[in-house]
């Protein structure tokens, strides 16, 4: 029963940490959406120069470990005179990372939409960005909900890495509890369960969203 008491004592602070985890990953995902769309239109742009720049950005952020990205952002920003709180550095790093992945998801959705639609819209005189916002984007979102939920889960899992730059999210809180209680097994298993439950809830939300959007067609 000592185990139960231990978990009961520490659960509130762990749930608080979960809140930070959800906040950091949620903000990153939401900020990443419009920026990911912009990068997606960059990747599919008619300008070769814009395409190249977009591809380099995407290749860099998809080709390096997120831990390295996080450390670079955290240690590099102060060097160029920008002092940010760890949590902000974490959000910036996760956002810049998810942009690259979301752009690829959006590109997949974009490819599934017949190009004739865009041509027709341009013919009737709708401006490029208006057509993108009102015609392409709503359809893209309907197609890519499952992938977007996957990306959200992956960012939520990766957000455990921001513990290394002292953001007190679930992982960091667990480490701190272990440091004072010397009960790593119980605490880390509890944290594991919290992560799994959170991700399970996320996939449920994803399913519900999918069904609602499917009805919209």
């Amino acid at each position: 029963m000592a185990t139960l008491a231990l978990i009961q004592d520490n659960l509130p602070i762990m749930l608080w940490g979960t809140g930070v985890t959800v906040l950091v990953s949620g903000v990153a995902i939401i900020l990443g959406m419009p920026l990911g769309l912009v990068l997606c239109f960059g990747l599919t742009s008619s300008s070769a120069w814009l395409r190249r720049v977009s591809r380099v950005y995407q290749s860099l952020w998809r080709g390096t470990p997120i831990l390295v990205q996080l450390l670079i952002i955290y240690y590099l920003l102060p060097l160029i005179g920008i002092n940010v709180a760890p949590i902000l550095a974490a959000i910036i790093a996760l956002t810049l990372n998810t942009i690259a992945f979301q752009a690829e998801i959006f590109r997949g959705g974009l490819l599934a939409i017949p190009p004739g639609q865009m041509e027709a819209a341009r013919m009737v005189g709708i401006r490029k960005w208006s057509a993108r916002i009102y015609i392409l984007i709503p359809q893209i979102f309907r197609l890519i909900i499952p992938s977007l939920v996957n990306e959200t889960i992956s960012i939520l899992k990766n957000s455990s890495l921001v513990s290394v730059i002292a953001v007190t999210e679930l992982m960091r809180v667990s480490q701190q509890i272990v440091a004072t209680t010397y009960r790593p097994f119980e605490i880390y298993i509890t944290a594991a369960i919290i992560y799994i439950v959170t991700n399970f809830l996320l996939s449920l939300v994803g399913h519900a969203a999918e069904q609602r959007l499917a009805r919209g067609t």
Partner: peptide, 16 residues
Amino acid sequence: RGLPILILLFVLYYGG
């Protein structure tokens, strides 16, 4: 698939 790899490693390494 629902678990951060960091947690898995901590359970094995520190919890083991």
